[in-house]
Structure formats: C-alpha cells, structure tokens
C-alpha cells in the first residue's frame, strides 16, 4: 500500500466519466510520473487525487487515512501540496510574498522555510522583492513549487511543471525535484516530456483514455518496446 494512493478512481466533471478504474500511487521519497497521450486524463487523474474532481467510485488514501471526501484545501492541511499547471503564482505579489502566502495556514515562524526554499532555488532569493509576474517562465515555476513547499507537504503534486520552459530549465527543474524527493517527500507529477520524466521516476503510470495502460518502474517503462513505440516516439 502506497503512502498516497487513488484507488480505482472513476469519475468526471459532468455526466460522462473521464477516469475509468484508474489507480495512481506514490511513496515517500519516491517520484511517480503520470504520462500518456493528449486527452488521456493525466491532469484529471492528478486532480482526482487532490479532490478537485468528484469521484463516483474509488477512494483516495493518504497515510492510511481515507481523504476521499475532503476538499482540496483540507487536504493541504493534511500535508498535500499541489502546484497547478497554469496560474500557479500570485503575479502581483512579490516572490517573498508568494512564499508567505504558501505558508498562510501556518502560525509558527516561517523564516526557516523561506530560507530553505531560497537554498533550493537561489535565483528566487535574488528576485525576492520582484513581483512574480515579472519573472521568466522557469523562475515562475520555481516560485510555484516553492510556494507549495512552504507548508512542508508530505506529498508534492506537480501538474506539468516543465510546460513551456526551455530544455535547459527543464533539466534544472528535474534536478530540483529530485532534490526535494531526497527530503523524503513523495512526488507525483504529470509530464508531457515523458522520456525525461521517466528517467528520474521511480514509478511510471501510462494512462490511455482514463485507464491504466502500463504501470511499472520508470526504468522498465523506458525499456518497454511497446511503450517506447507508442508513447515515447521510438
């Protein structure tokens, strides 16, 4: 049983289901990656785990506790962090204010956490007084991840963290994500750049039309010729 697991999730936004019997899980210190073609329900599966999608069947267990009926903000309190794909920073707030808002639910001293985020993303320290809206795409993603880290989540969920950033920035972001996983944080992410993402993944989920198609270690999926041909472009 994984630390965080969405089991046999079935559901959608309206009458039609998008997810069918889909299972996604991740353990502490592990990176799990959801890949698949466009419209496979990757982001939807992640949103389902985070409570942003009503489920008709299935359940979400977090640290052994059933959180299926909790609202997203309640799951944040439990120790789940979520970085949406777009609109994931407060553009008119400074970098530091973004981090402060990330820690809004905490009543204790947050200076250590801010320092930690700055250690992880040194560029943010330099730009801490700048509005997040003035940063480059890669820097914004760092702010977004930093904001989610401020609550010291046990699980960090990232919806396409490398969307729209250059390959160099992507590599750097993946390095940082590996570093976060080493702090014993469970990381669940959806990725378009399937190949690179599977390279750093402990676990990979290939979804097709809202169903689990392949589930294996990242390494095994990369080695799987069918996966390579169908989803990784050869």
């Amino acid at each position: 049983m994984s630390f965080l697991i969405g089991q046999q999730m079935t559901g959608g936004y309206g009458a039609a289901d998008i997810l069918h019997d889909c299972t996604i899980g991740v353990d502490k210190g592990e990176i799990a990656v959801i890949v698949g073609p466009n419209g496979a329900g990757k982001s939807t599966a992640m949103k389902a785990v985070f409570g942003m999608l009503p489920l008709r069947h299935g359940q979400v267990l977090f640290d052994g506790e059933d959180v299926t009926l909790l609202k997203p903000e309640e799951r944040v309190l439990k120790g789940m962090g979520f970085v949406p794909q777009t609109h994931n920073v407060f553009i008119s707030l400074s970098v530091e204010e973004n981090l402060e808002m990330g820690a809004f639910i905490r009543q204790d001293d947050i200076r250590d956490s801010i320092a930690q985020v700055y250690d992880l993303f040194p560029i943010l320290k330099e730009k801490r007084k700048q509005p997040a809206g003035q940063l480059s795409g890669g820097q914004r993603q760092q702010v977004a991840v930093g904001r989610a880290l401020m609550t010291h989540p046990k699980v960090l969920m990232l919806d396409e963290p490398t969307a729209g950033v250059s390959p160099i920035v992507m590599d750097e972001l993946f390095d940082r994500i590996l570093e976060i996983a080493r702090l014993d944080v469970a990381i669940l992410m959806v990725e378009q750049n399937a190949k690179q993402a599977l390279e750093i993944a402990d676990k990979g989920y290939v979804l097709v039309q809202g169903r689990n198609r392949f589930t294996d270690s990242g390494e095994a999926l990369l080695a799987n010729s069918e996966v390579r041909r169908a989803f990784l472009g050869g």
Partner: peptide, 22 residues
C-alpha cells in the same frame, strides 16, 4: 500585514488563494 497580503493574493488569484488555505 498578513491579512492585507492575503486580500491581495485573493484578488490576484482566487483558486491559488484557496489552495493556500486563505
């Protein structure tokens, strides 16, 4: 102030403010 900043955050991005526990 924390409250003032949370107001700005809410006005900037309602969904993210919710996710941040505001």
């Amino acid at each position: 102030t924390r409250t003032g900043k949370s107001m700005r955050a809410y006005s900037d991005n309602e969904n993210l403010a919710l996710l941040s526990g505001i």
